[in-house]
């Protein structure tokens, strides 16, 4: 167990030169830019939805007075808050789709072309 060395998954055998190509590309400014645009959206969005959901769960457990308040008819804050979780989930999914196709995909295509161009014999 301790003696085997890192190996590549079967079917993905890389020639040393193609692996070097990935290492080179990872150091480029274009790739750093791609990684930054990806993380700039997904990390804050993940933190935001987890906090928003966590708030809902914690309020359900501890803020009964607030959650029980009537909004209109038999509809209370708890129901509205729950429905807002649906709204925020749909919204984040849609925003991410839009952001990714504008700000991530073009950069990814560029870097990918760079990797594959560099591999060309």
């Amino acid at each position: 167990m301790s003696t085997d060395t890192p190996s590549v998954p079967p079917g993905t055998e890389e020639t040393p030169s193609s692996q070097n190509r990935y290492v080179e590309v990872e150091k480029t400014a274009e790739f750093a830019n791609l990684r930054r645009s990806f993380r700039r959206f997904v990390f804050p969005a993940t933190a935001a939805f987890l906090i928003w959901y966590g708030l809902y769960v914690v309020l359900s457990a501890y803020a009964r007075g607030f959650m029980d308040a009537k909004v209109v008819g038999h509809i209370n804050v708890a129901l509205v808050f729950g429905l807002l979780q649906f709204v925020s989930t749909f919204l984040i999914a849609w925003l991410y789709m839009r952001y990714a196709s504008r700000n991530i995909d073009p950069l990814a295509d560029q870097v990918r072309a760079d990797v594959e161009g560099g591999e060309a014999k």
Binding site: T12, Y22, V25, F31, A108, V111, V115
Partner: peptide, 8 residues
């Protein structure tokens, strides 16, 4: 690089 670009 591969996970973000889809290369390979």
């Amino acid at each position: 690089v591969r996970s973000l670009t889809g290369a390979g």
